[in-house]
């Protein structure tokens, strides 16, 4: 089982400059503490910097001010201790499902047998046993996204980042996969950070919901969600939390934010 990571983000700012245009504050003094094993969701309107924040955490972008630490160690570049699931499943079309997941273990330093076992276990974890030899084009959108989750978890990272992983799926598949992510998080015990537009998804899955606003990209509210799992989407407490988050997004993000939600 993965050791859950403790993520600390301190005073992180990032600016972005396009020639001939004023400097954009993508992120302004963001502070966030993610407890080991927590499920934290970041919601906010487009352009609030939530995906940028994930790119900083995964290590694809180093150009920022402030500190990001995983287990008290400053993150440097990408590492197998930090996994990510993108909005597009990003499975390589020329590799089978098991090869795609195995690709994340190329540099794990594990033996062949350990790798095979991890691949098999994670395919089973996401409910895709029997599809090991299938190519990505033979999988539905939902199955491909499950495979991407398996790939993100196979190297047993300390933290898994989910960048709008269900954004491109239809409503029904999305609900199935929300259940799945909730189950996988409980089984694996790994720290997860989800970025989404979907407020219901945020309340359904998280211990903590972070609301961000744009211009400059910043955190405007942090809510703890104490409802027991599994959660009932129709529960009045659930609905009330949803409304609170929507309000937080609306007040600070303007009309576009409410619509985006």
């Amino acid at each position: 089982m993965a050791t859950p990571g403790h993520l600390t983000i301190r005073n992180v700012s990032k600016t972005y400059s396009l020639p001939g245009r004023p400097l954009v504050n993508v992120l302004s003094r963001v502070n966030l503490d993610v407890e080991p094993g927590a499920f934290v969701t970041i919601v906010g309107p487009s352009g609030c910097g939530k995906s940028t924040l994930l790119r900083l955490i995964i290590g694809l972008d180093y150009d920022y001010k402030g500190e990001i630490e995983l287990n008290d160690k400053r993150i440097v570049g990408t590492a197998l201790s930090r996994g990510i699931v993108f909005q597009d499943h990003r499975l390589l079309p020329w590799l089978t499902l098991e090869q795609n997941i195995g690709l994340s273990l190329e540099n794990s330093g594990w033996t062949r047998a350990e790798k095979d076992l991890a691949v098999r276990e994670h395919i089973a974890l996401v409910g895709l046993s029997g599809f090991e030899k299938a190519y990505p084009h033979e999988l539905s959108g939902g199955m491909a996204q499950r495979a991407a989750i398996a790939r993100g978890l196979a190297s047993r990272p300390e933290i898994l980042l989910l960048d709008e992983p269900l954004g491109a799926l239809d409503a029904l598949t999305r609900i199935h996969l929300q259940d799945e992510i909730q189950r996988i998080w409980e089984v694996e015990g790994v720290t997860m950070i989800l970025v989404t537009h979907d407020v219901e998804e945020a309340v359904f899955l998280s211990n903590k919901v972070v609301v961000m606003a744009a211009k400059p990209g910043r955190i405007v509210e942090t809510l703890d969600i104490d409802l027991p799992f599994p959660r009932d989407r129709a529960d009045p407490a659930f609905v009330a939390l949803k409304r609170r988050i929507l309000t937080a997004m609306g007040e600070d993000g303007g009309k576009t934010a409410t619509r985006a939600a």
Binding site: V126, G127, G130, E138, G142, E180, R183
Partner: peptide, 18 residues
């Protein structure tokens, strides 16, 4: 809950267009 979701997964896996 877990068994529900696994069933849901099975249904999805079975009905999707492999």
């Amino acid at each position: 809950h877990t068994s529900d979701t696994i069933e849901a997964a099975a249904v999805e896996a079975a009905t999707v267009d492999l």
